[in-house]
Design a protein around this nucleic acid. Structure first.
Lengths: 207, 207
DNA sequence: GCCTAACCGGAGAGGGTCGTCCACTTGAGC
DNA sequence: GCTCAAGTGGACGACCCTCTCCGGTTAGGC
C-alpha cells in the first residue's frame, strides 16, 4: 500500500507508540497529542503527521488488544459450560480493562471510542447471544434476562473500576454481584422494564 | 451573619440560581460560571462574586435535594420490611438522579462533589448499615454481602443512567439486577474478594 | 560524497476555560 | 435630589488544547 517509512521516521513512530501506550494506560484516552509528543521526546508535528486523528493512534495502540478480546469471546463459545464461559469471558475482559485505563474507556463507551470498539462489539455480539441462550437452556441464567442485560454488566463493573482504579478486585466483586443478579434462582422478582435491543446496546456503549 | 443583599443583587442571585438549576440538571456539574452567567443574563463577574467557588453554588442548588434524600433514608429505616425499604430507597434516589444530571454526578462521586455529598453519605450510612443487618436477619439479603456492596450499587446503576440518560427505566432495571445479586438465594457462589470498608466507600464515592 | 525528497521540531494561529479587576451604574439612606 | 457604598459586566491575562506550517535537518539512492 504505502511506501515503507524512512528508518528515522519508523524509529520515531515506534517511540510514539510506546510512549502513547504507557500514557494512555495510565491517564486514559484523553491524553493529548501534545502530551504524547512530550513523553516520546518528539515534536507535536511528528505525532500529527503519523497519526492525524486520534482514531488513527487508537487503532494502532489497541487493534491487537481488541482483536484478542474478540478471540477470547470466540474461544468462550466453544466451552461446554455456557454460563461459566460467559462469566469467565466477562471476568477476563474486566481484568484487562483494570490493567489499562485506555482499554476500559475504549470498551465502555467513552466519546473517544469509535470504529474499532464498534466492530469488536459487532464481532462479539453473536457469541454472547449464543452463550446467553445456552446458559438459559442449561438453567443457569434466569429466563427473563436478555442479551441487553448482559451488555449492561461491563458498564456497571466498569463504573466501579473507574471509581477505584487501584482495586481491580473490587470491580471483580461488582461483576460477580451483577452476574449473580442474572443467574437463575428460585422465586425471583422479574426484572422491571425491558432490556435494550441491539440498537439500544449500540447507543449505550457507542457513546 | 451577613448583611442582606441590595434588592437588585438579590434579584440577580435568584436569576442565577434558577438558570443554574436548569443548566446543571441538563448538562451536569461541569457547567461553567460563564455558561451560567450567559443563561442568567448577567455578567460572569456577578456569578463569581455571589458564588466564588463551584461548591458555593452547588450548596445553594442542591442543599435541599440532598437533605431530602437523607430524610428518605431515615424514613426507610422505620419501615418493617427492611429489604423492601432498602430497595425502595435506592430506587427512589435513582429516580431523582434520573431527573437531574447534576444530582446524579453529585451523588456518584464526581470530582465536583465535595462536602455536601460527603455529609449526606455520613448521615445515610448508619441507616443503610441498619437496613442491611435487618434484611440479612429477615433472610432476604445474602449473608456474605456487606454495606460496602450496597454502596457499589448506586455506582453501577448510575453508570447505566449516565450511558442512557433518556431511558431511566433501563437504569432501574440495572438497579434491580444488582440488587438481585445481593438478594438471598440457594447455593450461590460466594462473592469474591472483600467489600470496601467505610474509608473505602468514602474514597469510591468521594472522588 | 552529493543531492533531494522525506522528515523533523516547535512556533504560532485559533478557540476554549477560569478567575480577576476596575470603570461605570444604581439602590437606598439622609 | 444627593451621595456613595454596593453592585455590575465584560475585557483581559494566564493557561491549555488542537492542528498547521515552514525553515532546517537527514537518510539513503546514485
Amino acid at each position: 500500500m504505502t511506501a515503507p517509512l524512512r528508518r528515522d521516521a519508523e524509529r520515531n513512530r515506534q517511540r510514539i507508540l510506546e510512549s502513547a501506550r504507557r500514557l494512555v494506560a495510565e491517564t486514559g484516552l484523553a491524553a493529548s497529542h501534545d502530551d504524547i509528543a512530550r513523553a516520546a521526546g518528539v515534536g507535536v508535528g511528528t505525532v500529527y503527521r503519523r497519526f492525524p486523528r486520534k482514531a488513527d493512534l487508537l487503532d494502532a495502540l489497541f487493534g491487537a488488544q481488541v482483536a484478542e478480546v474478540a478471540a477470547l469471546a470466540e474461544a468462550a463459545r466453544t466451552e461446554p459450560d455456557a454460563w461459566a464461559a460467559l462469566t469467565g469471558f466477562l471476568g477476563e475482559v474486566l481484568r484487562r480493562q483494570a490493567a489499562d485505563r485506555g482499554l476500559r474507556e475504549l470498551l465502555t463507551g467513552s466519546p473517544h471510542a469509535g470504529e474499532l470498539a464498534r466492530s469488536a462489539r459487532e464481532r462479539i455480539a453473536p457469541t454472547v447471544a449464543d452463550l446467553v441462550r445456552r446458559a438459559q437452556e442449561e438453567g443457569r441464567m434466569r429466563p427473563d434476562a436478555e442479551v441487553g442485560d448482559v451488555a449492561l454488566v461491563p458498564l456497571m463493573a466498569g463504573a466501579v473500576l473507574a471509581a477505584a482504579p487501584g482495586d481491580p478486585d473490587l470491580a471483580q466483586r461488582a461483576l460477580a454481584t451483577a452476574l449473580a443478579g442474572l443467574a437463575a434462582g428460585e422465586d425471583r422478582d422479574p426484572l422491571p422494564g425491558s432490556a435494550p435491543d441491539a440498537a439500544g446496546i449500540e447507543r449505550l456503549l457507542g457513546g
